[in-house]
């Protein structure tokens, strides 16, 4: 058992090399969510004037979206990196070892979860500086747990695609998938204010529950079980499906 944990840790650390050991490589992914936040607030900040908008502070309202967006792109990058590892033959090294496949998967996913906390930290600092509401310790912790979990989901998604296509050319698919998952929700406005098709999509999109769970602390200033458990269920459900698909992809990688 301790050997398996060691494997997960070793693979997660290797994943961190991508940001720690390549000079400058971390900067775009570190800053992108913050840039998005500033841009969105500047452009759409006046949406709060619409009757029925549940918050008068657009920064606090979209901050959770940008946190998850950053986590999503970090996860997608894990998929792109796996595709590169497959192309270059590195992944064969892992597959030819007796390490259990779920352990290999856990290692890659864990690195995404840890990496996702970097852009989120930058984002939070900037957001608080421009007036986002402090969600309280519990609210912040809940948000961070969901951010890490969502990065894991996005990583699993990227891994599924990487195992399927085995080429970095699939990168836009990985990124677009997580982008849509996060944005086709109550990302810009409460459900009631979304127009036709987006309202329909956001209603059934499980990521809407995740966003609402992260958002509760920032917008309402308190955490309630009623807004938390749907998020947990959404993460668990998506996780079960994506992990199963990823494991299937691994098992079939030599077919």
């Amino acid at each position: 058992m301790s050997g398996r944990i060691a494997t997960v840790r070793a693979l997660a650390f290797r994943g961190l090399n991508e940001v720690v050991r390549v000079p400058g490589a971390a900067i775009p992914s570190l800053l992108a969510p913050t840039i998005f936040l500033l841009g969105f607030v500047s452009m759409f900040g006046n949406l709060t004037e619409l009757p029925g908008f549940t918050s008068d502070d657009f920064v606090s309202f979209v901050l959770p979206v940008m946190m998850l967006q950053g986590a999503g792109f970090t996860g997608a990058a894990t998929g792109v990196n796996l595709a590169r590892d497959i192309e270059q033959g590195w992944f064969d090294r892992l597959l030819a070892s007796p390490a259990p496949r779920p352990v290999l998967l856990a290692g890659m996913i864990a690195s995404a979860s840890v990496r996702a906390l970097l852009p989120t930290s930058v984002l939070l600092v900037v957001a608080f500086a421009i007036g986002a509401d402090y969600p309280g310790v519990v609210g912040l912790l809940v948000a961070l747990v969901f951010v890490a979990a969502f990065a894991a989901l996005a990583a699993a998604w990227g891994i599924v695609l990487a195992l399927r296509f085995k080429t970095q050319s699939a990168a836009p698919l990985m990124q677009a998938g997580t982008f849509m998952a996060v944005m086709f929700t109550t990302s810009y406005a409460p459900l009631e204010l979304l127009t036709g098709w987006l309202r329909a999509v956001a209603t059934v999109n499980p990521v809407t529950r995740v966003i609402e769970a992260v958002r509760q602390g920032f917008v309402a200033g308190e955490v309630s079980w009623a807004l938390t458990w749907p998020g947990l269920v959404a993460v668990a459900g998506l996780g079960a499906v994506l992990v199963a698909l990823a494991l299937r992809g691994m098992a079939r990688s030599g077919r």
Binding site: F44, N46, L47, L50, M183, F184, S187, Y188, A189, L193, L194, T195, G196, W197, L198, R199, V201
Partner: peptide
């Protein structure tokens, strides 16, 4: 474009 029009369409 899709998200903007869907999300901020009431703007």
């Amino acid at each position: 474009l899709a998200v903007n029009t869907g999300g901020a369409g009431r703007a």
